[in-house]
């Protein structure tokens, strides 16, 4: 049974359509990546899920309850970390964490202390003095200290350094092992790739792709840089190769993820001296999805 089910959700602000028939589904024990560029409608969707915005149309069920009507009931089992964490400048981080935990219902002192240590946060500082990353840590500590069944995390790592990102990833894996569900919004594909079982991609208020990452492989390309002892021939004739360019360091090209095996077999005949590959980025993925299609105005 799905923990979260969004069916045909639309949200209009005046005449402006922010969400246009969004469908999402999240099962128990699953981590769902919710990705899209800035302004695609990720935060708006999440705010509707939390009953902070009222949907214009469609159905939003969390724990099989209506997200707007039963918001308070639902929130007893939800932990949320917003993308922009705005805190009260004259309260300390420790005070805010305690307040948040208390409002969530369950109090787990040991977990709180452990997480403050892991995230390397000074809870005696006033929030005024915190950087963006530290404010995010406050929200993350409060969220992961709670006993929630559903974690809704809206770009939670945008201010964290790589070390803290790793701590964050451990926290997500941890709750996943406990059979809890996570909705993780992000605009960084590689982050989502590490953590998520499934991915839904939103753009301009519409879900354009949904599925496991391997199901989405047909959309991704890998960027490659190759230098060989003998000049490579026959690349142009191969399938799934794009944007071939010669440079001083060697040849760069993009290859469809499905075709990688064939391409590597081919170039290895020429004696590889250098091989670099970069993971597919969200931008590449969109470019592929929208090849030839025109943009139709910005959406927030």
């Amino acid at each position: 049974m799905s923990l979260l089910k969004v069916t045909n959700l639309t949200k209009k602000f005046g005449k402006f359509t922010a969400l246009d028939g969004v469908n999402l589904e999240l099962d128990k024990g699953e981590v769902l990546g919710f990705i899209g560029p800035n302004g695609a409608g990720k935060s708006t969707t999440i705010r509707v899920l939390l009953g902070i915005l009222k949907s214009t149309g469609g159905e939003v069920k969390v724990f099989n309850k209506d997200a707007w009507q039963d918001a308070v009931d639902i929130h007893k089992r939800v932990a949320y970390v917003p993308g922009d964490v705005n805190l009260w400048p004259n309260l300390t981080g420790g005070e805010v964490i305690d307040l948040f935990i208390k409002l969530n219902g369950t109090v787990n002192k040991a977990k709180r202390e452990e997480l403050i240590g892991k995230f390397d946060l000074d809870p005696s500082k006033k929030c005024r003095a915190y950087s963006k990353g530290n404010r995010q840590k406050v929200a993350l500590v409060a969220a992961f200290s709670s006993d929630a069944d559903l974690f809704i995390l809206d770009e939670p790592t945008s201010g964290l350094d790589p070390l803290m990102e790793k701590v964050f990833q451990e926290c997500v894996m941890d709750v996943k092992r406990q059979g809890k569900s996570v909705l993780l919004s992000s605009h960084i594909l590689s982050e989502v790739e590490k953590l998520c079982d499934r991915v839904s991609i939103i753009r301009q208020g519409k879900i354009i792709e949904s599925g496991t990452l391997s199901e989405l492989r047909h959309l991704t390309r890998t960027q490659m840089l190759v230098d060989t002892m003998r000049p490579i021939t026959g690349l142009n004739e191969m399938q799934g190769i794009h944007k071939i360019e010669e440079s001083k360091q060697g040849v760069t090209f993009q290859v469809d993820t499905m075709q990688i095996d064939e391409v590597i077999k081919h170039i290895s005949q020429f004696g590889i001296t250098r091989l670099e590959s970069a993971p597919p980025t969200l931008e590449d993925l969109f470019m592929r999805h929208y090849e030839g299609a025109k943009d139709t105005g910005g959406v927030r």
């Binding site: 705010r47 939390l50 009953g51 902070i52 918001a71 308070v72 009931d73 929130h75 007893k76 939800v78 949320y80 917003p82 805190l87 948040f100 409002l103 969530n104 219902g105 929200a139 809704i152």
Partner: peptide, 8 residues
């Protein structure tokens, strides 16, 4: 939002 996203 911090309060309304919790059980308040």
């Amino acid at each position: 939002v911090h309060l309304l996203s919790r059980s308040v």
